[in-house]
Design a protein around this nucleic acid. Sequence first.
DNA 1: GTATGTTTCAAACAACCGTTTGATCGAATG
DNA 2: CATTCGATCAAACGGTTGTTTGAAACATAC
Lengths: 222, 222
Amino acid sequence: MSDLLEARQVDTATRILDAAEVLFVEHGFEATSMRMITQRAEVNLAAVNYHFGSKDALFQGVFTRRLTPLTRLAVQNLDKLEAEAGPNAPSVDAIMHAFVDAALDIAHDPKRGGVIFVRLLSRTFVESHPALRESLPRHYEELVARYAQATAKALPHIDSNELQWRLSFAFSAIFNAFAGNNILRLFVSDPVVNARDPRLIATYLVPFVVAGLIAPATAKGA
Amino acid sequence: MSDLLEARQVDTATRILDAAEVLFVEHGFEATSMRMITQRAEVNLAAVNYHFGSKDALFQGVFTRRLTPLTRLAVQNLDKLEAEAGPNAPSVDAIMHAFVDAALDIAHDPKRGGVIFVRLLSRTFVESHPALRESLPRHYEELVARYAQATAKALPHIDSNELQWRLSFAFSAIFNAFAGNNILRLFVSDPVVNARDPRLIATYLVPFVVAGLIAPATAKGA
DNA sequence: GTATGTTTCAAACAACCGTTTGATCGAATG
DNA sequence: CATTCGATCAAACGGTTGTTTGAAACATAC
């Protein structure tokens, strides 16, 4: 068959990954059934187990396909930043931009998952599913260590305990924002803010978390 | 039988609510089965449907029991704050403390749900389950309107669009922190920070979100 | 004591879950 | 052409899901 006309007929495994990616971010892992996935991918029900082994393994497969490009990009951005800064520490603003820009790049590139994967990744971080509690950290260890270390260098007056809390808060805000969870929408019926465009979100997001990170150290003897 | 000795034998419906509260926060709504709930509550399987009608309705029941005291307390705290400030606007720091203190009060009072309900509430906000997407906003409308309005008065130089984003980020950080989702634990194998005591969290949390809220307005023509 | 209305109970319901099976297809290899 | 091997398929697997049923147990009122 002419590989020119029918080459678009994508791989079965890829079709499954694409379908699962969308459904997981829409309904969550537990609420997404095998039958929903295979139906959307237009493949046989048994195809998931044949190609991936199990539903849990498929979940991991969805991530391993996308995760490496993202972490590599985020680390590259930080590398470049530190190279430019030379002996000085890059500013917290620049560090946070390096991270968020990596996510934005992915979000605008459908071939690397696009906004759907960014939302799925964020949602998964927040919900923390057991099937990924072991595999995800391995992918991220270097990334987080590098960013935590860079932030610590930029903020030497914040003790490491408080800084770790602040980074935790900052990433909470970042991941929730990218996950499309406009928390206000949960209780305000008609929110002014409803855009899901990550680039727009980042405009307001970065200054917010930077301000929180660089705030004066909390008094110890409270 | 003597109501003195056996009065502690609590209501069946209450036993179900208590059991469901714990299980929902531990495993999430979807992953918690009726049989898990009734087994923990030591009641018959049919009791849930008899007393609440359905699993979804039980989910709502878990919230309506606890939500009113929490929102009332949070609004009371804000009332008191504004009364003290007179014509002046309370500081953002005081406003955020009013909200967080309400959550802390609940967290330390087992009779109003304790830390378990605070975590469940936070988790539910983040995950946003369909069964509550309609009922929760009604409970919270006044609360959020009041706090948003107070914050707007304290920060007149921030336009309402940006302020709504910032509030969204701030509540993301707050709810995630109380939900016990130490995001860093997801990728750092041995986090320095691992405490779940809400009062300890709040020590670092409030300064962080306040700094983010009161940061200079983002330049518009970027 | 009898009748009334509420609560509890074991059992079963249909529907769905993730997974497995064994047959069948299709293309590449000898 | 025959064989082999990976991919696809309909069908069924055992198990769990939320919910319903009808009888039994209970308390309350007449």
